[in-house]
Design a protein around this nucleic acid. Structure first.
Lengths: 126, 126
DNA sequence: GCAAATTGTTAGATCTGTCTAACATTTTAT
DNA sequence: ATAAAATGTTAGACAGATCTAACAATTTGC
């Protein structure tokens, strides 16, 4: 499975977060969350569908495939670690931390994420 | 002055680092450093030149303008802070830290950079 | 149950950044 | 001084992600 572009990672993550309650995600909500037009979101869905990461039937809600969910969870986990590290260790404001995490999650190495996690764990033992 | 794309920030930074000794930077060196073709690098130079960030005469070496240098120094400074934080605080391998810094420097907030700097300063006082 | 509002889709344009291939200029070596 | 090598430039293509505008389908509110 080839690596995803940042844009596609963001779309996957949005779908993941919008479909927590078992229902699928809607194009409008995805578009709104990412600040793009419905046309852009729709176009992205074709890409994700071709890659087997989502199920996308015309005019229906969008669902993650198991593979898609794995990708989304991985990205989401990275986001969470970065945000936690930035707020708890660096004392950065939550809004800024979230914004930074949203960008950094796509580019940071697994090594560094792991290191942040370790750091947080050690810190919590004080 | 509008915000630069990540690509342009990288080109500026490369020029900055390649012209430390007062001489300008060469297209081939910029291209090699960034892993792109000379054609791509050349095309980027037009963009940077139009923005008034470099001086680019045909077949001549490339020089930063004062504004261009400011941008480059700012990006470079962020790179340095991230790399230092990742190696010294997170104990991440230098090669990985450099790679991560190279990506994160374009997306991280000033607040978070500042927080990392503060953290490093406090740490150095132990 | 129908009209209006919302939501989803498509076509086509644009912008950015990249590439290859061909060509022009400059530098180097003998 | 000139041929070969290195370097720089240009044109044209392409991929990814976005947009607008027009249209289609679905849902909602009387």
């Amino acid at each position: 499975m080839g690596k995803l572009t940042f844009a596609m990672e963001n779309y996957l993550e949005a779908i993941y977060e919008l479909s927590t309650d078992g229902t699928g995600a809607r194009i409008s909500d995805i578009a709104e969350r990412l600040g793009v037009t419905k046309a852009s979101a729709n176009s992205a869905m074709s890409t994700l569908s071709e890659k087997g990461l989502i199920i996308n039937e015309k005019y229906k809600e969008i669902f993650l495939t198991p593979t898609g969910r794995e990708f989304a969870e991985f990205t989401s986990k990275k986001h969470q670690v970065i945000e936690q590290f930035f707020t708890q260790i660096l004392k950065v404001d939550i809004a800024i931390a979230d914004q930074d995490a949203c960008a950094i999650e796509h580019v940071i190495s697994n090594d560094s994420i792991h290191a942040m996690q370790e750091f947080l764990i050690k810190k919590s033992k004080n």
